[in-house]
């Protein structure tokens, strides 16, 4: 982690009619940082994340992501970030290799480089024997690890992970976090949402959204001191209990 700012949100706001889903949020994320983006259901996390990924335009305010502003240069934002959600990640009816080639192609990476990177990646994950395997027949845990590797395959500055470990077994969940650490060590910024409070402890800093606003943002240790809790669950509970909105 260093002091280089890769995400800078200033008064970022999204309104749907008279409902303010994301309400003037401002924060910075540094290069190589693992940033946990927490909040109760309906707090406005998904809306904020969609704006940061260039998928929806702010009603007010702006954010600079990977050097481009999300209001006017959202296409550039999309090219320079990675994204992985729990629901959609890979094409089930393509092989492991075909999925990787497809994403390499979409991001305009040279074919030769893609081929080299696929070999290196499969070796790194211990997936060499699965190169020609249809993704649908992989165990769920493997799919999630592959999906994460795919989301950073084009070497983005930032990767957005939306509940990446939902529903995976305890061992795979931990292996997944080791992949996150590795990516962060390589300088990739990780922006992650989760409902597992133990995972919040693994983040460098955590923000907690309540009713559209960021109510707390600090390191897990400092948040625990500030809110007098023993764990991030206590902190989350203290903040989110008073939430007025559900999703």
């Amino acid at each position: 982690m260093d002091n280089h700012v890769v995400i800078k949100a200033e008064g970022l706001t999204k309104k749907f009619g008279d409902f303010t889903a994301t309400d003037h949020i401002s924060f910075e994320v540094h290069r190589g940082e693992i940033f946990g983006f927490l909040g109760a259901n309906g707090a406005g996390k998904t809306t904020a994340m969609r704006m940061l990924c260039g998928l929806s335009r702010p009603s007010e305010g702006n954010a600079i992501v990977a050097g481009f502003d999300v209001k006017d240069h959202y296409e550039d934002v999309k090219r320079h970030i990675g994204y992985m959600s729990q629901k959609f990640s890979l094409y089930d009816d393509l092989t492991v290799e075909e999925n990787l080639k497809l994403f390499g192609g979409i991001y305009g990476m040279p074919r030769k480089k893609v081929a080299e990177m696929i070999t290196a990646l499969l070796k790194d994950l211990g997936f060499e024997s699965e190169r020609k395997t249809m993704v649908r027949s992989l165990p769920l845990g493997w799919k999630q690890k592959l999906a994460f590797s795919l989301s950073i395959f084009h070497e983005p500055q930032i990767v957005f992970l939306d509940e990446p470990t939902g529903g995976v077994d305890p061992v795979t969940r931990r292996q997944f976090w080791e992949l996150i650490y590795k990516a962060a060590d390589r300088g990739i910024t990780v922006f992650v949402t989760t409902h597992y409070m133990d995972e919040a402890e693994y983040c460098d800093r955590v923000s907690i959204m309540v009713d559209g606003k960021i109510r707390a943002l600090d390191t897990p240790d400092n948040l625990k001191k500030q809110f007098g809790g023993e764990s991030m669950y206590d902190v989350f509970y203290a903040l989110a209990r008073g939430a007025k909105r559900g999703d």
């Binding site: 259901n41 939902g166 529903g167 409070m197 509970y237 209990r241």
Partner: peptide
């Protein structure tokens, strides 16, 4: 409770 935040789960 899948995908539900910890407070709502409780």
């Amino acid at each position: 409770t899948t995908g539900v935040d910890p407070v709502s789960r409780k």
